[in-house]
């Protein structure tokens, strides 16, 4: 195995351009599980943790190399909430938001928030420069994304004026260190517009747009509307049954969780 340890983004992009198949290594918390269990045998690894510019938070730009431990202290309320639920303290010290984006697991804890605040994923290559993709275009399937072989995920770009009213919650069977069976994020603009995104209930982070529309029509929802909101969310998700949970439970819990978060937003 060969390893390249660039200290600048330019060097990293050079390396990636020269060897488009190379594996990108950030915190290692996803890739090394694959390596340890013999599912991945990298031939060339480009290690990204020495690149200072990736590890910066600059206004609406969150560098891909920022760790969850740092994001636990984020001013974005829901981002801090979700960061605290990623793996264990040890995982949060190593794992990065860029790694979470790159792995593109349906259960990726950061993804519902990125989808709910309508962040764009910034990817960069030596030859084609910077591309910014909305979540809906970047995440293409279970552990699949639109990153080209010569690109590196460089940042999550937040829109101007991300609402401060935002809530995240995650259901796992255990109280800590657990993969989500359902996660959700709700954000609410000052004008009452609500966005609802869910994780672990579809191949990619899912925006519950019909449920959002229901609240747009009923910005001060009655109990009946809230009940309809729950039903709508449950209808919009497309979860599966696996060894972690069941399709039916996930559908039910997605609705309940989204309502609770909506109510928390409405109460603020």
């Amino acid at each position: 195995m060969e390893i390249t340890r660039p200290t600048s983004l330019v060097e990293a992009l050079e390396a990636r351009a020269e060897d488009p198949g190379a594996d990108l290594l950030a915190g290692g918390t996803d890739l090394m599980v694959e390596v340890n269990f013999g599912h991945s045998r990298p031939e060339h690894v480009i290690a990204l943790r020495r690149i200072a510019e990736l590890a910066q938070i600059d206004g609406n730009r969150i560098g891909a190399g920022v760790t969850w431990a740092r994001l636990e202290k984020s001013d974005h309320r829901a981002l801090a909430q979700l960061a605290r639920t990623v793996g264990s303290p040890q995982i949060r010290a190593a794992g990065t938001i860029g790694g979470n984006i790159g792995t593109a697991s349906p259960a990726g804890d950061g993804l519902p928030w990125l989808a709910a605040v309508e962040a764009e994923i910034e990817v960069t290559s030596k030859d084609r420069g910077v591309r910014r993709l909305p979540c809906s275009e970047f995440f293409t399937g279970v552990k699949r994304n639109a990153l080209a072989p010569d690109e590196v995920i460089t940042a999550a770009i937040l829109p101007e004026n991300v609402p401060t009213n935002q809530e995240f919650a995650k259901i796992g069977q255990r109280s800590a260190m657990v993969i989500s069976t359902v996660s959700a994020c709700v954000v609410r603009d000052d004008d009452g517009t609500v966005r609802v995104a869910l994780g672990s209930v579809a191949p990619t982070p899912l925006r519950a747009t019909r449920a959002e529309a229901l609240i747009a029509e009923n910005p001060d929802p009655s109990e009946a509307v809230l009940a309809e909101f729950v039903r709508t969310v449950s209808a919009e998700v497309s979860p599966i049954t696996d060894h972690r949970s069941t399709e039916s439970y996930r559908r039910h819990a997605a609705g309940v969780l989204a309502r609770r978060l909506l109510e928390r937003c409405l109460a603020r």
Binding site: Q81, R84, T85, E167, A169, K170, I171, S175, V178, R260
Partner: peptide, 9 residues
């Protein structure tokens, strides 16, 4: 219940 997942009031 739900711990730091913040599921539960």
């Amino acid at each position: 219940p739900g711990g730091t997942g913040l599921t539960t009031n």
